[in-house]
Write a protein that binds this DNA or RNA. Structure first.
Lengths: 259, 259
DNA sequence: AAGGCGATTCGACAATGTCGAATCTAACAC
DNA sequence: GTGTTAGATTCGACATTGTCGAATCGCCTT
């Protein structure tokens, strides 16, 4: 591992968390001398990854990141193939839909279809949610033993009073997810919001993404029709990706109770 | 400048351009030994900035970039303040609208309002266009002498038969842009597409972004109503940002004819 | 005008990044 | 099934670079 690249990435991570920071502030956060941080920041700045605010004493993330992430999204075969099915899923169910992949114990939304009721909604692409508190995240954890072991090795944070935080209950939930190829979450991440998710399988049979519909907690549980449409969308996307089967066979699923 | 961070950024740039590349291919492109590239890529991968494809021999940009760019967009005060006015601009004119900032001789779209006709349109946030071939880009160049000098010091590339590529004509156009606080482009970037842009000023009176409406070339030139609405939106956003005046006084504009 | 704080610059030197050689892995041809 | 090829990956010697302390600069406050 190259230390200076590691440091540079940590600086990006700091600016991601705190939005605007000065050199001395970043140095304190990373326990490094200001001149060291200054050199790294100037290098990042020369590539547009970081920018200095006009007032001159604080730094922010830079526009080059937007271009890189635009290409990242374009690269995603799973996203390209999901968009049409998600559009249809939202049209049929009247609900918002999300596609997510794993990122360091969280699930990040790589595609979002708004609820088709004409109301004003925030675009969610780029939003992250802790995996343990999200239907998509639970699905991704259920089919990835190593990832689950890692996440469950640290205390699970409660985002609401409903968030499941006991590892044993999570493992039971993973077992059920693998049996039904469905993950559920009711007000575990956001009060008033629930979601149900299904796995997306690749041509190698691996679960590489999860697709979800989002519904108001007042409409919980999701109707049979919503669940049927969700499974249909997941199956269709997986098939387009060349998955041999959907859902992935239980025997092929790695159990998450490896200690 | 830190060489290893520079190299890491170049690797991200390669993957941005070529989408998927192997270690040996990147090494050839950068004129570096494969083991050097491998070390850098593994560092980037550990932070989610790069990912290895399941087949194992090619690399792509990683999901952490999406999260970073999501925060980048959230950080942008100019974007937050423009969204409502752009929504109104698109509603009143029936045209798509874009907000852009400068990135290495290009203009990158940081907010996009679709044309409100219900048709299916690609989201454009993250898209880049060479500044010289874009109304927004020309506006940004017109108010930034150093940037303009840099762009005009290299040959301008024609994207269509209509693209202006002569530096003297560009300078004349910049002069006119500063006088009218408006930039125009008809089929210079994309056949069939035209745009008109206005500058967005900061509280320090600097032009920090440009706002544009996009119209079909068949509707060229834009009507007086469209131009009026665009200026109104630009003035309103600038005012919200604390700009002392709009448009920025001509005397304060740095001439771009510095050789 | 002086003081304080943070950004920035500079250059000596220690630590790290580089990269050649070797090994590993997977795909392909026979 | 075996051998070949090409690319990924690992390892460690060593030269180059990144680090960082000291000094300076710039801006804001008093």
């Amino acid at each position: 591992m190259i230390q200076s690249i590691d440091r540079a990435a940590k600086i990006l991570g700091l600016l991601q968390g705190s939005r605007r920071m000065g050199i001395t502030e970043m140095a304190a956060a990373l326990d490094l001398p200001p001149s060291t941080v200054h050199g790294i920041v100037k290098s990042l700045q020369s590539h547009g990854l970081v920018a200095q605010q006009p007032s001159g004493n604080r730094y922010v993330l830079g526009p080059a990141l937007l271009k890189l992430s635009s290409v990242y999204l374009d690269t995603l075969d799973v996203r390209a193939r999901s968009m049409r099915w998600m559009h249809e899923l939202s049209s049929r169910t009247g609900l918002a839909s999300r596609l997510g992949v794993e990122l360091f114990g969280e699930v990040i939304v790589i595609h979002h279809n708004r609820r088709p009721d004409g109301s004003e909604q925030m675009p969610e692409t780029g939003v992250t949610i802790p995996s343990h508190a999200s239907a998509m995240g639970k699905v991704l954890l259920a089919y990835d033993a190593a990832h689950a072991a890692d996440v469950l090795s640290r205390p699970l944070i409660a985002l609401t009073a409903e968030t499941t935080t006991e590892p044993d209950r999570m493992r039971e939930e993973f077992e059920r997810i693998r049996q039904e190829a469905l993950g559920f979450e009711n007000e575990e991440a956001v009060i008033g919001e629930a979601s149900v998710a299904a796995p997306i399988c690749s041509d190698e049979g691996e679960v590489i993404a999860a697709i979800a519909v989002v519904l108001p907690a007042t409409e919980w549980p999701p109707s049979d029709m919503v669940i049927s449409d969700l499974r249909e969308a997941a199956r269709n996307v997986s098939r387009e990706l060349g998955a041999p089967t959907w859902p992935r066979p239980i025997a092929a699923a790695d159990p998450t109770d490896i200690q």
